[in-house]
């Protein structure tokens, strides 16, 4: 058995999710290699070399990989796959884009959003927006998995001594071209790995109203999240959406402001350690998952909270 983890990258740097995926890989038997794909990813390679538990860092650094398109990345993964029993990536938008395509080319299924490894062939994953947890077993010769970042502890980003192996394959994407990107710039902690998350819903009323969420987040050095309704209404950008179809978070503290608590939202945050809800409707379902619920008008309670912190 041998595992290959496909590294997650953020603009040439290794993204924190990779450390959690390595945590999951550590629960499988056998050695583990890490595949770093991109262009000008020296920084990512430097960080990858010292990750504990990684034997080899396979590097595909070429202009054709700069845009990290599923079309050619999947072919690269397939080219590297022989010899591996497990291929793992984060259940991030890039992992979800890439891995099923690679799995299909390998003629195998994928197990999505793994939250527990029971054996090298048996895994647990949420279904029905997290309202049920399935235990599944795969007979495929190579197991292709995407891993839920919040379900596995991150490995320490130091202490390892991996060998770096440059890959020769240069595979072009012929039918896909990157036109542009609009990436959010933020000084705040990253949403999926933050210790504290403050989330706002439709109850914030407007883009201006949503400022209150940012102000509280500033006080707590927290990341900012949002419900789908808040994103749809244009209060914030899509990358902040928490839920079944947005990001999954499990911080130590999750504060939901003006969020009703629809099942699709709960799917993305109910594994948080402590949940606080402030909502003016005493019957809002968010209170069912809140450790501390405050029935109040958020426009009064939140400024008071900021003041008192």
């Amino acid at each position: 058995m041998r595992t290959l983890v496909i590294a997650e990258q953020d603009r040439g740097r290794l993204a924190p999710a990779t450390l959690n995926v390595l945590g999951a890989a550590g629960e499988l038997d056998g050695p583990c290699d890490l595949l770093v794909v991109g262009h000008d990813c020296a920084a990512a390679i430097e960080s990858a070399r010292v990750l504990p538990g990684v034997e080899r860092v396979l590097v595909a650094d070429a202009p054709v990989y700069a845009d990290r398109l599923a079309e050619n990345l999947a072919e690269l993964v397939v080219a590297v796959a022989p010899g591996y029993s497990h291929l793992l990536a984060a259940a991030s938008t890039s992992g979800k884009d890439l891995m099923p395509r690679a799995a299909a080319l390998l003629g195998v299924n994928q197990v999505s959003e793994v939250i527990a490894v029971e054996s090298p062939a048996r895994f647990r994953r949420p279904i029905y927006a997290g309202n049920a947890i399935a235990t599944v077993e795969s007979d495929d010769p190579v197991k292709v998995l995407t891993v839920r970042q919040t379900a596995f502890a991150a490995v320490e980003p130091a202490g390892g001594t991996a060998e770096v192996v440059e890959l020769e394959q240069v595979i072009e994407a012929v039918a896909t071209r990157l036109v542009g990107e609009q990436l959010a710039e933020s000084e705040r902690p990253e949403l999926t790995s933050a210790r504290v998350v403050v989330s706002g819903g439709r109850g914030l009323g407007s883009r201006e109203g949503f400022e209150l969420v940012y102000r509280l987040a500033d006080r707590l050095d927290a990341a900012v999240g949002a419900s789908r309704a808040a994103v749809d209404a244009g209060f914030v950008a899509n990358d902040l959406q928490v839920g079944q179809t947005g990001k999954v978070v499990a911080p130590e503290l999750y504060i939901a402001l003006g969020v009703s608590g629809a099942i699709q939202h709960l799917a993305g945050m109910k594994d948080s350690k402590v949940v606080v809800a402030i909502n003016k409707d005493p019957d809002a379902p968010i209170f069912e998952v809140a450790d501390y619920g405050l029935v109040a008008d958020l426009f009064e309670a939140v400024p008071e909270l900021i003041e008192a912190l």
């Binding site: 953020d10 398109l69 991030s92 938008t93 890039s94 039918a175 896909t176 071209r177 990157l178 036109v179 542009g180 990107e181 609009q182 990436l183 959010a184 999926t192 950008a237 899509n238 990358d239 990001k247």
Partner: peptide, 11 residues
């Protein structure tokens, strides 16, 4: 819609 924001591709 990607984790970092938005991305435009031509296919």
């Amino acid at each position: 819609e990607v984790d970092g924001g938005l991305q435009t591709l031509a296919l």
